[in-house]
Nucleic acid binder design. Structure first.
Lengths: 215, 215
DNA sequence: ACCTGAACACCGTTCAAGT
DNA sequence: ACCTGAACACCGTTCAAGT
């Protein structure tokens, strides 16, 4: 044990990393820190400490703190995308408007369960949003929503609203709810802190009902 | 000039403040900084510098940076409240649902025109939201919205949705739009960066139309 | 009563020097 | 090619000492 030579790619890197896959280790440490103590708790130095490396080392892999957090955000966005995909698979047989709803429910479920990660993928002040892969991930989800609403409209399931308005208002609603929760505003709007997801889904259902064609 | 004695209350405090109303000067400097360069640019030391005072002086008036920013947020919230009040006065003669809409328009107008101040009053990570006067200001606006929706319902202006759902979804929608704008997400949702207010109001109108009783 | 100025324990970031 | 460790210019916050 301890001949101090580790392969760069495969193999089981144990103990400290003097050579290992530092980039990945840094992102992993940052992801942990975000979950444990929120975005503001992520300092490059603390991440370096957790990776067992000197304070300057991370700058070999990320030009600045924002770039590190952007990598964290991209990983978080991947998880959100998977959540949405799973929800769509689970709702595969249902009408288009129900599948549209399922995306909202998945988003709310993920955002309320992972507030700090939701903050990272959302907040401009924290990451380089435009330069990240997040907009394209978003675009993919948006495209699914658009086609679901087109399908719903073709089936006569929509009311008076045009699909684009339904899409954007739905997105803003769900994003707004997730943000209100994150920003600690549920109490001041009479929403329960204990069952935030149930309350949020009930509101989403109210919205869906408002834009659906009357039965 | 310069006999170095300034009254604590009235009088015209000129030049530096060696004694003056430092608390107010600190808040004013912080408000300026927020507008100029955003929340993250507000450091206690920079605020002290702008007020012409030593780095430790602010801590005589605010226990921590968060308390200073909370004072900034309360001032910002006052301005937002005035904006809403003015909009309600301007819409005095109109039907309840139009006055409900006017509150949303005023909120959007203020938030999009003052993104950094909107961030300060909204973000939990930045201020002590619960301990501030902001929740009560919010409650006042919420109370007006509630009574407007009750009035709208009594007049038969609402569709199937119950007023509480209409209220909370309306709030989440408008908050979500303001946040999406602040977080730089308008482009990735196909919304114009140049005319964000017009686009947001159009969406709000779509929502109002969806919850209104069909004509 | 309020402010100064030095101090402490942190930051992000850079850069020579090491391996 | 990648990492160390010292350095720089910042922070928030505390606290003796000054007026």
């Amino acid at each position: 044990m301890g001949t101090g030579q580790t392969a760069g790619r495969a193999g089981g890197a144990e103990r400290p990393y003097h050579h290992g896959d530092l980039r990945r280790a840094l992102v992993a440490a940052a992801v942990e820190l975000v979950a444990e103590a929120g975005v503001e708790a992520v300092s490059v130095r603390e991440v370096a400490r957790r990776a067992g490396v000197s304070p300057g080392a991370p700058f070999r892999h990320f030009p600045h703190r924002t770039a590190l957090l952007t990598a964290v955000a991209e990983e978080a966005m991947d998880r959100l995308s998977i959540s949405v995909r799973d929800a769509l698979e689970a709702a595969a047989g249902e009408p288009a408007l129900r599948r549209f709803r399922a995306i909202g429910v998945a988003f709310l479920g993920w955002a309320l369960a992972n507030p700090a990660h939701f903050e990272v993928i959302s907040t401009r002040a924290v990451i380089d949003y435009a330069a990240s892969t997040i907009p394209e991930r978003n675009a993919a989800i948006r495209a699914v929503m658009t086609s679901l609403l087109a399908e719903a409209q073709a089936a006569g399931a929509l009311g008076r609203q045009d699909p684009e308005t339904v899409l954007l208002n739905g997105r803003a609603l769900v994003y707004g709810l997730a943000r209100m929760h994150l920003d600690g505003q549920f109490p001041s709007w009479g929403l329960p802190q204990d069952e935030p997801l149930a309350a949020s889904i009930a509101l989403l259902d109210g919205y869906i009902d408002a834009i659906a064609r009357p039965a």
